[in-house]
Amino acid sequence: MKFRYLFFIFITLLISTLLSCGPDRLDDYSGDSYELVNQNGETVVFPDDFEGNPVFVGFIYTHCPDICSFITSNLKKVHDELDSDDDTQFILITFDPERDTPDVLKSYASAFDMDTEPYHFLTGDTETIDELMRRVNVRTNITDELAEKSDQDIYFINHSDKILLIDSRSRLVFDYGGSMTPVEIFIEDHQKL
C-alpha cells in the first residue's frame, strides 16, 4: 500500500516536472483581443482565433523593400522547413494600416507566394493597430523623406525589426530580430515548444 502511494507521488511529480519544462514565457497575450482583418477581408481576432496552434508573428509594412521583405521571406522559409503536417500558423501584421488595406496585403502576399493558409496577413483600424503595436513593443516612426518627390502618399517608416513565437496558449516564448535571425534558430526554438 505504501509502495503504491509513493509510486503515485512519483508519477505526479514527474508529470508536473514535464509540464513545466520548455522555454520560459516572456509574456502572456491570452487576455488580449484585437479585431483585425485578413487579406481576404475576413474578420480575425488576434490572438484568440489562433489559440491551439503555435504562431510565428512578424510585423511589416508593404512599402518597405528591404527589412520587411526579409521578415516576410524568413517566415516562408521557416514554414518550408517544418513538417508538412505541422499546424503552426504564420501571421504578418502591418503597422501601416492606412495604406496596407486587405487588397494591398493580398497583392503583397501573392508576390511572395504566401496567399494561402497557414499565412495570414492582417490589418485593422489605426487605433487597434496602434494599441496592438504598443502591446507587443513594436515601435514605429514615420519619415517623410520621399514626400516631395512624388504626388503620391509616399513615406517610409523607421520600425522595430521583430518576429515573435507564441505558443498554443497565446504566451510569448521567443522574441527575435525578424530579418536577421537564421531560419535554423526559429526551427530549433519551435522544436522546444
Binding site: 512599402h63 518597405c64 523593400p65 521583405s69 494591398v104 497583392s107 503583397y108 508576390a111 511572395f112 507566394d113
Partner: peptide
C-alpha cells in the same frame, strides 16, 4: 531582387 507588387517597393 525581392518580389514586389505593382505600385509598391522592391530592392
Amino acid at each position: 531582387a525581392r518580389p514586389g507588387s505593382e505600385g509598391r517597393m522592391s530592392a
